[in-house]
Amino acid sequence: MDANDPIPASVIGGYLGAGKTTLVNHLLRHAGGRRLAVLVNEFGDLPIDADLIVGAGERLIAIAGGCVCCAYGSDLIAGLEDLAGLPDRPDHVLIEASGVALPGSIGAALSLVPFFRLDAILVLADAGAIAAQLADRFMGDTLHRQIASADLVLLNKADLVSARELAATGSRLASLAPAARIVPAHRASVPVEIALGLHAGRAWRDAAGAGPTHVTAAFETLSCVLDGAFDVAPLAAALARPELGVLRAKGLLQDRAGRLMVLQLAGGRHETEVVAAKGARAGRLVLIGQAGCLARNAIGAAIEAARCR
């Protein structure tokens, strides 16, 4: 990644007990070489598992693998600026929102700081508790706003409810957040690629291989080699249609004007951007979805429709 490229940042929201801290620790354990920086509101209830910590200061905790965790206090903007100024620039930033915060507002605040790009808003929901929380007379509307702002809803602790209840809760959440994808999980253990997007290096390597590789049993990836030019922005919008079942996508494609474009997608959120060539070869696209949920024919049709002729 170029030193001037914006750092992708994900917002991790959801009410108390939904598993935000568990997710953060899971991602730190499986960072796969990424240098993650975690921004938390406060160090109050220690956000990082003790065995991951290699050094702790007042506002910064050093974590195995070159990761860090910082407390931003009342000033998120200053916390982000501090991160951007770290000698070892992070590869990805995770902002853990407080249980009553609106993740959408934090996502909007990200746009005010240069050097960052909002990658995705991940909202966790406790599969067994979310229905009651949504109906709570004090917190209900806040929970609705949290869910509605999500790109991906991680329906956590899915193993603790019946399949029927899980399906009902899932469709309830889908109706509150039509643009989001609902991903069941337990112990917040989703593939890192779902939470953080596809790591450029690995994604391109996979793409060079043949056919799909399984991320875990519950998810599948689809890697395509796409020669030629594409209308990249319309392709991104098409891949974001819910019926295609794509949770995450990353592509490096050539556009009609011959420029190299990167395509990123997280749930319904997608963006495309011109990148400097740097010897990279265009024509790769990697998609991840839940196992059995990627609509391959429809995806193929979307790709062909975006091909320049």
Binding site: D75, A78, A109, L112
Partner: peptide, 27 residues
């Protein structure tokens, strides 16, 4: 191209200079 609820834009598409709410103000 700034799109933030706390930052109204002028007719020229640039921020008008009014900043509402803690995030926009602190930035």
């Amino acid at each position: 191209g700034i799109s933030h609820p706390g930052i109204p834009l002028g007719e020229d598409g640039l921020p008008s200079g009014e900043l509402k709410g803690p995030d926009a103000m602190m930035a």
